[in-house]
Computed example of a mutant assay.
Amino acid sequence: MTAQIPASIYDVSATGLDGTSVSFNTYKDKVLLIVNTASQCGFTPQYQGLQALYDQYAGQGLVILGFPCNQFGQQEPGNADQIQSFCETRFGVSFPLFQKIEVNGSNAHPLYQYLKKAAPGIFGTEGIKWNFTKFLVDRNGTVVKRYPPTTKPEELEKDIQGLLMPKK
């Protein structure tokens, strides 16, 4: 039996790589870029682009959230310490990373149940196809867009800037 899908992204909590529980209420009024990640994937170099976006826009309200996932080709075999060390030493990652989760199937994390329902993929499919699928969430918690793994982080810049702009 699948858990009930959260009514709002702010009803979600997840466990950080350090083991602490993080309520998504923490991210109210922030623009979120949520990514399922892996250390041994062809898209792993995207960590560099994600960190560049974070460096540039965190001060304006962007938070990037990385969710390691081992469901695609066993490309995230490491434990929390190994993932943290890899991301920091190889890519200088300083944005929040969380414990490994599942994004598909009956054990999919409630966050991903919510994201997939709010922003289905091509032809309305909900399943995550691979690592580095990205979801952009506005300051009100609305999932604005879903991007495939092939979309490079720098290609999201214009969409992110639009959400960071103060409303007139």
Rank of each mutant, 00 (worst) to 15 (best):
L136D: 06
G92S: 08
L53C: 08
I9N: 02
F132W: 07
N70R: 09
V103P: 05
M1C: 11
A80F: 10
K167Y: 07
S106D: 14
T44W: 08
G105I: 09
E126D: 13
A118P: 04
N140W: 12
V31M: 04
Q40L: 12
G59C: 03
L53I: 08
F95W: 12
Q48M: 04
K167N: 10
V35K: 01
T20K: 14
T133P: 12
C69T: 02
Y114K: 05
V63K: 04
L136W: 05
G105W: 09
D138F: 11
L17V: 07
L115H: 04
E88R: 14
F43K: 03
V22S: 01
G92L: 07
F135R: 09
F132Y: 10
P45H: 05
V143Q: 13
K145N: 14
V35P: 03
Q84S: 14
K116W: 06
P6L: 05
G66S: 03
P148T: 15
S39D: 02
V63G: 00
T15H: 03
F72H: 01
F98R: 06
I64W: 00
N79V: 07
V93P: 01
I34M: 06
S8A: 10
S23N: 10
G78T: 01
L17R: 05
P120A: 11
T37C: 07
R139H: 12
E88I: 08
A14I: 13
L163H: 08
G105K: 08
E126A: 12
D138H: 09
G73I: 04
R146T: 13
T125V: 13
L62A: 02
E126S: 14
T26M: 10
E157W: 08
R90D: 12
T89Y: 10
D159A: 08
R90F: 11
D18V: 03
Y27W: 06
K152H: 13
E157K: 15
D55V: 00
C87Y: 00
T133H: 11
